[in-house]
């Protein structure tokens, strides 16, 4: 039997559209840790973060018929997560005082060029840049980013030393930083790295 893990996100999206639960499970497998980690960072509450991950994937399932087949799923999930968190912020349901932070931000003078890039674009750019990394580096980076493995586990899987893994991940981040030339974009990446 051909394994679903060999399909790319766009192919999985097509299969989910036809009601394939295995394809949906594979997307969950790929992205749940990214979303959980991000939600935890913003919400600082385990239960709320878990509910949010659930909400995001249920939304993906419900809205699947409306999603364009060319949608980048990683981007869709990120935006969906962000919008749900912004909603919680609006209703002041988060421990951190984000409302004040946003109020200050709005009043600060800032570089307007940066703001031209929406998060959606950034996410797309990041995905593309990861695909352009050298093969071995990308393999390690994706194992760490998507599979949520520790350096030690990656080292075992790929039969290399954990020092090499660490070096490769740092190299990957450095290359991405250089290529993207925008620090905040690395939020998505650094949030997914094992600690």
């Amino acid at each position: 039997m051909n394994s679903y893990k060999s399909l790319n996100d766009f192919q999985l999206l097509e299969l989910i559209k036809s009601g394939d639960a295995n394809a949906f499970a594979e997307i969950y497998e790929r992205y749940w840790t990214l979303i959980l980690h991000h939600a935890l960072k913003m919400l600082k509450d385990n239960d709320e973060a878990k509910d949010l991950v659930q909400d995001v994937f249920v939304t993906l399932w419900i809205k699947i018929d409306q999603i364009d087949p060319n949608t980048n799923i990683a981007g869709f999930l990120y935006i969906s997560t962000r919008n749900k968190i912004l909603n919680l912020i609006r209703h002041n349901q988060i421990k951190t005082d984000y409302l004040s932070s946003l109020a200050n931000f709005v009043s600060e003078p800032r570089n307007s060029a940066l703001e031209e890039l929406s998060a959606k674009n950034l996410n797309f750019v990041i995905e593309k840049e990861i695909q352009n990394l050298p093969v071995k580096m990308r393999e390690i980076f994706e194992l760490s980013r998507k599979k949520f493995l520790s350096h030690k586990e990656i080292a075992d899987v790929l039969d290399i030393s954990d020092k090499t893994v660490k070096k490769q991940i740092n190299n990957a981040i450095r290359i991405l930083k250089l290529r993207l030339n925008i620090l905040p974009t690395l939020i998505l990446l650094s949030s997914a790295l094992p600690y």
């Binding site: 962000r82 968190i85 998060a119 905040p184 650094s190």
Partner: peptide, 16 residues
């Protein structure tokens, strides 16, 4: 753009 940029920089500050 402002909301999204604030969100990105905010989430960059946070850790979990």
């Amino acid at each position: 753009a402002m909301v999204e940029h604030w969100y990105l920089s905010e989430s960059f500050k946070q850790s979990s």
